[in-house]
Design a protein around this nucleic acid. Structure first.
Lengths: 158, 158
DNA sequence: CATAAAATGGCATGATATCCCATGAAAGCC
DNA sequence: GGCTTTCATGGGATATCATGCCATTTTATG
């Protein structure tokens, strides 16, 4: 399973091409497909969600971590599949962000890649800054939840 | 499972490189990745948290058990995963601390590694001294309380 | 069918990270 | 107590990566 970490701000050239962070590429390359699967994030308005093809397959199979039998999520999964784009790497590890996604995220000259473990997001840098501030506030307010999570992990690891 | 012990003060050279204590390295080396995963400590302001890749994977899996499009997932991912860095060893067991982490911890010429069992922290030495003094105070207070409780228990029992 | 526009692939470049070897100090060993 | 090994540290050589530029192919358009 992929583990996307860290943040990278890369330039979008005139043709809409962006270098995918080198450390992401290994996890995005498989026999099935070498590239990114991207779609407008259902959770965060201005973000693009990105993942590898295997995760998208899981979503399609309905065996993702959220409840596959719920009709609500079934609709969501279907909508995601319809809005998803396959973005293959060129020889230098770049992808082309389609106009539709660029517009959705308000990306012009720079793109922020934010690692999120099994997935990552792509943002306009300013939008990400704003989101980060917001999310950090919420995370602080809910530190108790975070602690619980950590304890679960520590328990599981021992 | 890793067991990081003791304290080490190592030099940060002109290129931002630091030797990871030799006794830490075995626990930080696996098939998946040989190096440190580091992120700003959510608890202690000026510290950097360090761990091995397996622990980070567990944390990521834990976060992934939330709905990927929920605030819980997003907030935790933003607070930890996006702020984490993979820092691979060079041939001599050194890592490069990114500018962002150096700034967060206020590290300039020296870095203090503090073993904490399954994880460790990296501090600016002065900051660590201050933290340790404070923590010692708290520990004393806890020990006193513990003593009192013990006496109560013994008193009640007799 | 011809021409312009756009997509795609390939190559060049500068910055940065990685590799490799050297040195000295400390620790362990015989 | 002298010898050997491990480790932290330094510097220069090399490779990788993001990115710009150009060539070639493909797709629209008149």
């Amino acid at each position: 399973m992929a583990l996307f970490l860290s943040r990278f701000d890369n330039k979008v050239d005139r043709k809409g091409r962006v270098s995918v962070p080198a450390s992401f590429r290994a996890d995005l390359t498989s026999d099935a497909f070498a590239g990114v699967v991207a779609f407008p994030s259902p959770g965060n308005g201005g973000a693009i969600d990105g993942c590898d093809i295997d995760r998208m397959k899981q979503l399609s199979d309905g065996i993702d971590s959220f409840n596959p039998f719920s009709n609500e999520y079934g609709d969501l999964a279907t909508a995601i599949l319809t809005k998803s784009h396959r973005l293959p790497f060129d020889g230098e590890g770049r992808i082309i962000l389609p106009q539709q996604l660029l517009a959705h995220a308000g990306i012009t000259s720079m793109a922020t890649f934010a690692g999120r473990g099994a997935t990552f997001q792509i943002w306009a840098p300013e939008a990400y800054e704003a989101y980060e501030a917001e999310a950090t506030e919420r995370a602080k307010a809910q530190a108790d939840k975070f602690e619980l999570q950590r304890r679960d992990q520590m328990g599981a690891g021992e």
